[in-house]
Amino acid sequence: MFRTGLFKNNGAKLGAGIVLVFIIAGLFAPWLSPSDPLQIHMEHKLSLPSWQYPLGTDHLGRCVLSRLIYGTRTSLYYSFIVLAIVFAISIPVGLLAGYAGGKIDHLMMRITDILLAFPSLILSLAITAMLGPSMKNLLIAFTAVWWTGYARVIRSMVLQIKERGYITAAKASGTSHVHIILRHILLNAARPILVLASMEVGTIMLSIAGLSFLGLGAQPPTPEWGIMLNDSRAYMQTEPRLMLYPGMVIMVAVLGFNLLGEGLRRSAHDFNSEGK
C-alpha cells in the first residue's frame, strides 16, 4: 500500500515538473529559442541537427527546436483561453441550476441534454466549418460545445454541497442567496473545480493540436505542434525525425497535465475523506 502511494506521489511530482518546464518554455520562448521560428532558410532546408539548429530544420529551413518552443506558447495560450471561457460560462450556469433547482434547473439540463447529443468533436468541427477555419473560430466552437459537460458536473457538486449543515445554518440565519452562493458554495466547490480544470487541459491541448493538424485550427506559418506534425507527413519516408519531435512534445505535455491532474484529484480525495 505504502509503495503504491509513493508511486502516485511521484507521478504527481513528475507531472508538476513537466508542466512547469512547458510553462517556462511558453513564457520565455523568445529567450530560449535559438533562432526565429518563422525565418525561412531554403539553403538549410531539411538539415540535420547542428549547433545552429539543435534539432535540425524543417522543409522550409526553419529551426525545429524554436518552432517547438514557440508552439508551447501557442498551445498553452489557447488551451488556457478555452478553459477560462468554458468556466466563465459553466460555473454560473451550474451554480444557478444546482442552487435554484425547479424549473430553471430543468430548463438548463434539457439544453445541455440536447447539446450533449452531439459528439463534441463533431459539433466543434461543424461550427468551425461554418465560420471558416481559424484559431478564433476554433475557440468559439470549443467553448460552445464544452461548457455543457462542465455545467452538469458543477451542478452536481452544488447539489451535494447544498445539503450540508452549514448551508442550512446560513439559510436559517437569514443570509442572502447571493452571499450563500458566492461565499459558501463557490468557495467549497473551488477545489474540485480546480482539479477538474487540471484534468482537462490535456484533452484541450490534444484537440487543438488535432484540429490544427487537419488544417482547421491554427494556420501556417504559426508555430504550432499539430501543423508541424502535418507538415512532416510529406517527408515521412526520408525525414522521419520531423514527425517524431512534435508528436513526442504533444504527448509529454499532455502526459504532464494528466499526471498532475490525477495527483491533485487523489490528494483532493484524501483531503475530503479525512474531513469526514
Binding site: F213, G226, M236, P240, M243, P246, G247, M251, V254, L255
Partner: peptide, 18 residues
C-alpha cells in the same frame, strides 16, 4: 492507461504507418 490517454491519435497513426 496513461500513455493511451496522452498519446495523440494522429501521432500514433503516423508512427504505425511509418
Amino acid at each position: 492507461a496513461l500513455l493511451s490517454v496522452s498519446m495523440p491519435s494522429y501521432w500514433l497513426s503516423l508512427l504505425l504507418i511509418y
